[in-house]
């Protein structure tokens, strides 16, 4: 089982990213569940979402305690939240940041998802959309296939800029 925890702020699309990721995994003929952990809906508050992907049906509802992959959509969350909590020894952290980030003892990948979203004018209510470009990065990492990532995005959004941004992220991410 491959377990992913996504850190974001309310309104940034972390929950939607989890759903898109689960959808893409289904399209890859795998089993997946995507679950947010949140209560009252408040813009700007830290939000955690979870995705499990497996070849077998998934019966677990409890939260992911030792993720294989941690995705941080908003690096400022790292000031207040220990995003590395429980990460597996060989785990990876993917951070939305224009600059390299050094975290001791874990493999860190960075990509400027905000820049990518702004470049294609993927902005809603003044905020750049991060949930669709991040799917491109996750496809590049092999978590899901590139085709399924695009199909999942198209299933949920009609605006082609979402796919464009995912494509850009796929190309930009350096493994």
């Amino acid at each position: 089982m491959f377990e992913i925890r996504i850190h974001s702020r309310g309104g940034q699309g972390g929950v939607t990213a989890a759903r898109l990721l689960a959808m893409a995994a289904f399209l890859d003929k795998k089993h997946a569940t995507a679950a947010p952990f949140y209560g009252a809906e408040r813009r700007g508050a830290p939000v955690t979402s979870f995705v499990r992907i497996d070849s077998e049906p998934i019966k677990i509802y409890s939260q992911i305690r030792s993720p294989n992959l941690i995705v941080v959509l908003d690096a400022s969350i790292m000031d207040t939240v220990d995003v590395l909590q429980g990460i597996q020894k060989a785990g990876t952290v993917l951070i939305n940041s224009p600059h390299p980030v050094d975290l001791p003892g874990v493999k860190v990948l960075t990509i400027d998802l905000t820049g990518i979203a702004l470049a294609v004018d993927l902005v809603v209510s003044g905020s750049p959309i991060l949930n669709t470009p991040v799917l491109g990065a996750l496809a590049r990492m092999g978590v899901i296939s590139r085709e399924s990532a695009e199909a999942a995005i198209r299933d949920m959004f009609s605006d082609e800029r979402n796919v464009k941004a995912a494509e850009a992220a796929y190309k930009e991410l350096v493994l």
Binding site: A22, M23, H31, A32, T33, A34, A35, Y61
Partner: peptide
């Protein structure tokens, strides 16, 4: 159905 655990989880 259980709140959040099932109401908000995404499954097939």
């Amino acid at each position: 159905l259980d709140g959040f655990v099932l109401s908000h989880i995404m499954q097939s």
